[in-house]
Nucleic acid binder design. Structure first.
Ligand code: MN
Ligand code: MN
Ligand code: ZN
Ligand code: ZN
Lengths: 146, 146
DNA sequence: GGCGCGGATGCAACTCGGTTGCGTCTGCCT
DNA sequence: AGGCAGACGCAACCGAGTTGCATCCGCGCC
């Protein structure tokens, strides 16, 4: 438990450092949300973030939405559109621009970032179309649900 | 115009044939919805389907949802999750199981099926994970919006 | 350390894509 | 033609995300 809360504190500091370095104001909700993303082993929904913060640093629903939007806008996190019409958010652990694939488990509904998996650099598109970003999502069963 | 309505009628017949062949009951809403998907040059939202049918064969909002669900379940159409939290639907012109990529235009918001574009057959996933389906979406600008 | 301001938070009300329950209607089999 | 399971229409509902506005507070400045 001492170990755990030590890690938690370290994560909070790390989150604050990242926010400050991005030139953003360091506020309680922002640090708490980013720390939650950094702590998670899978991409979190708005609701999951809210729940994760509730016991220690309750944050208003709307603020969670706004903070996550801002983290995405400043490149500190990324948003993953899901099969179930809800967005999930993951911290950009290795800075912005790291295009990677995602895995969504149809058992537990969790989405994880596949930092290792290559996304094709280019694909064939119809004449006149200009590709900008490629998204690759794998559906299947995670190790736990298999 | 004679040409156009002739094509329209042909499409209605084709839609009915496909529905019957799938072992489903042939109803007015079902034929109309599938015919609309077959006629479209891009994947349609629920709302677009409803609008397309309104002038000739008005169909209740809820019925459109249910018909589209069923077309997907029977393999006559497929559902594409979008960046904007709405689903889009396309007819499965070449039968079910034809995995293909999609292109979403950030200008007009339209999504088109890239029937030509290969989806990688397999990707690297973490140990113990079982991939089932791979989805590839390209974001960019379409020829009209460029 | 205190001051002031612009941006951030909290709360309430709202939008909209999609769902559910239920009574009526109809495609299809006999 | 007759009967029934399944489809349709309508109304109420749900939940993710948004908007407007008053209050608060991080941070640069003294
Ligand atoms: Mn990710
Ligand atoms: Mn398609
Ligand atoms: Zn799982
Ligand atoms: Zn376009």
């Amino acid at each position: 438990m001492a170990r755990t809360s030590h890690r938690t504190a370290a994560r909070a500091v790390e989150a604050q450092r990242r926010i400050r370095e991005a030139g953003e104001r360091v506020t309680t909700p922002r640090s708490a949300v980013l720390a939650a993303l950094l702590a998670a082993d899978h991409a979190l929904t708005h609701h999951e973030v809210e729940e994760a913060l509730a016991p220690v640093t309750p944050v208003d629903r709307v603020t969670v939405y706004r903070v996550l939007d801002r983290l995405v806008a400043t490149g500190l996190a990324h948003r993953i559109p899901g099969e179930d019409r809800t967005w999930r958010f993951g911290a950009n652990r290795r800075g912005p621009g790291g295009a990677h694939a995602h895995f969504t488990c149809s058992g537990c509904g969790r989405t994880v970032c596949l930092e290792e998996t290559e996304v094709p650099a280019a694909v064939k598109v119809p004449r006149g179309f200009v590709p900008q970003r490629i998204e690759l999502t794998v559906q299947g069963l995670c190790a736990a649900c298999r």
